[in-house]
Amino acid sequence: TLFEALYDYEARTEDDLSFHKGEKFQILNSSEGDWWEARSLTTGETGYIPSIYLAPV
């Protein structure tokens, strides 16, 4: 399942991933609670993103 960003997000740590509204992600690991490891389909970068900023596509 792909997810789309509902809002912009600016990374706060080196493990976080910055993204823009409308960016799409492949989720790599969603077992860490509210922060999911994801790969951006726009940039190819991976990192942790807040799941509350996402909606399934």
Rank of each mutant, 00 (worst) to 15 (best):
T1H: 12
T1L: 13
T1G: 11
L2G: 02
L2H: 06
L2E: 06
L2A: 05
L2V: 13
L2F: 11
L2R: 05
L2C: 08
L2M: 10
F3D: 00
F3S: 02
F3L: 03
F3H: 05
F3P: 00
F3M: 08
F3R: 03
F3V: 05
E4H: 08
E4V: 15
E4T: 09
E4I: 15
E4D: 02
E4A: 08
E4W: 11
A5N: 00
A5V: 01
A5K: 00
A5L: 05
A5S: 06
L6H: 03
L6C: 07
L6Y: 03
L6P: 01
L6S: 04
L6D: 01
Y7H: 10
Y7D: 08
Y7N: 08
Y7K: 09
Y7V: 12
Y7T: 09
Y7S: 09
Y7C: 13
Y7F: 12
D8S: 10
D8P: 07
D8E: 07
D8M: 05
D8I: 02
D8Y: 05
D8V: 03
Y9I: 03
Y9L: 04
Y9W: 08
Y9S: 03
Y9A: 02
Y9D: 01
Y9E: 01
E10F: 10
E10A: 11
E10G: 06
E10N: 11
E10Y: 10
E10M: 12
E10H: 12
E10D: 10
A11G: 10
A11N: 05
A11D: 02
A11C: 06
A11H: 06
R12G: 08
R12V: 12
R12S: 12
R12P: 09
R12T: 13
R12D: 09
T13G: 15
T13A: 11
T13K: 14
T13C: 15
T13M: 12
T13V: 08
E14H: 13
E14W: 09
E14C: 12
E14G: 14
E14L: 12
E14V: 12
D15V: 14
D15Y: 15
D15H: 15
D15Q: 14
D15A: 14
D15G: 15
D16R: 15
D16L: 11
D16M: 14
D16C: 14
D16V: 15
D16N: 12
D16K: 15
L17G: 01
L17V: 06
L17R: 03
L17F: 12
L17E: 01
L17C: 03
L17P: 02
L17A: 02
S18G: 08
S18E: 03
S18I: 02
S18C: 04
S18P: 06
S18H: 06
S18V: 03
S18M: 03
S18W: 03
S18Q: 04
F19S: 02
F19D: 00
F19L: 07
H20G: 08
H20F: 14
H20C: 10
H20I: 11
K21I: 08
K21S: 06
K21R: 11
K21G: 03
K21M: 08
K21F: 05
K21E: 05
K21N: 04
G22W: 05
G22V: 00
G22Y: 06
E23W: 08
E23H: 07
E23T: 07
E23A: 06
E23K: 01
E23C: 05
E23M: 06
K24N: 05
K24C: 08
K24I: 15
K24E: 04
K24T: 09
K24P: 03
F25W: 02
F25H: 00
F25M: 03
F25A: 00
F25T: 00
F25E: 00
F25G: 00
Q26Y: 15
Q26M: 13
Q26I: 15
Q26C: 13
Q26V: 14
I27C: 03
I27W: 01
I27T: 02
I27R: 04
I27H: 01
L28N: 04
L28P: 02
L28V: 08
L28H: 04
L28G: 02
L28C: 06
L28W: 05
N29A: 08
N29R: 09
N29F: 08
N29E: 07
N29W: 08
S30C: 12
S30K: 13
S30H: 11
S30R: 13
S31T: 12
S31E: 10
S31L: 12
S31P: 09
S31W: 09
S31D: 12
S31N: 11
S31G: 10
E32S: 14
E32N: 15
E32W: 11
E32M: 14
E32Y: 12
E32V: 10
G33W: 10
D34V: 10
D34P: 09
D34L: 13
D34A: 11
D34I: 12
D34W: 12
D34K: 09
D34S: 10
D34N: 09
W35M: 13
W35Y: 13
W35P: 08
W35S: 07
W35T: 07
W35Q: 07
W36E: 01
W36G: 00
W36A: 02
W36S: 01
W36C: 03
W36R: 01
W36F: 06
W36K: 02
W36M: 04
E37G: 05
E37K: 13
E37A: 08
E37L: 15
E37S: 08
E37V: 15
E37R: 11
E37W: 15
A38H: 01
A38Y: 04
A38G: 08
A38K: 00
A38T: 02
A38D: 00
A38R: 00
R39D: 01
R39S: 05
R39M: 12
R39A: 05
R39G: 01
R39H: 05
R39F: 09
S40M: 05
S40Q: 05
S40Y: 02
S40R: 14
L41H: 05
L41K: 04
L41Y: 06
L41I: 08
L41D: 03
L41T: 07
T42I: 09
T42R: 14
T42F: 11
T42Q: 09
T42A: 11
T42E: 14
T42G: 06
T43R: 04
T43L: 02
T43F: 02
T43N: 06
T43M: 02
T43P: 00
G44S: 05
G44R: 05
G44H: 07
G44C: 09
G44V: 01
G44N: 08
E45N: 12
E45V: 10
E45T: 08
E45P: 00
E45Q: 15
E45I: 10
E45A: 13
T46C: 08
T46V: 14
T46R: 10
T46Y: 08
G47R: 04
G47W: 05
G47A: 04
G47E: 01
G47H: 06
G47T: 03
G47P: 00
G47F: 06
Y48I: 09
Y48H: 07
Y48M: 14
Y48R: 14
Y48N: 07
Y48G: 03
Y48L: 12
Y48V: 08
Y48K: 13
I49A: 05
I49G: 01
I49K: 00
I49R: 00
I49H: 00
P50L: 14
P50T: 04
P50C: 13
P50I: 06
S51A: 14
S51T: 07
S51F: 09
S51L: 06
S51W: 13
S51I: 09
S51M: 10
I52S: 15
I52T: 13
I52K: 15
I52P: 07
I52G: 13
I52N: 14
Y53F: 10
Y53I: 06
L54W: 01
L54S: 01
L54Y: 01
L54P: 00
L54V: 12
L54C: 04
L54F: 10
L54H: 01
L54A: 03
L54I: 09
L54D: 00
A55G: 09
A55Y: 09
A55K: 13
A55F: 10
A55R: 13
A55H: 10
A55S: 10
A55W: 10
P56I: 09
P56D: 05
P56L: 09
P56S: 07
P56K: 08
P56F: 07
P56T: 06
V57G: 04
V57F: 09
V57A: 08
V57T: 08
V57Q: 05
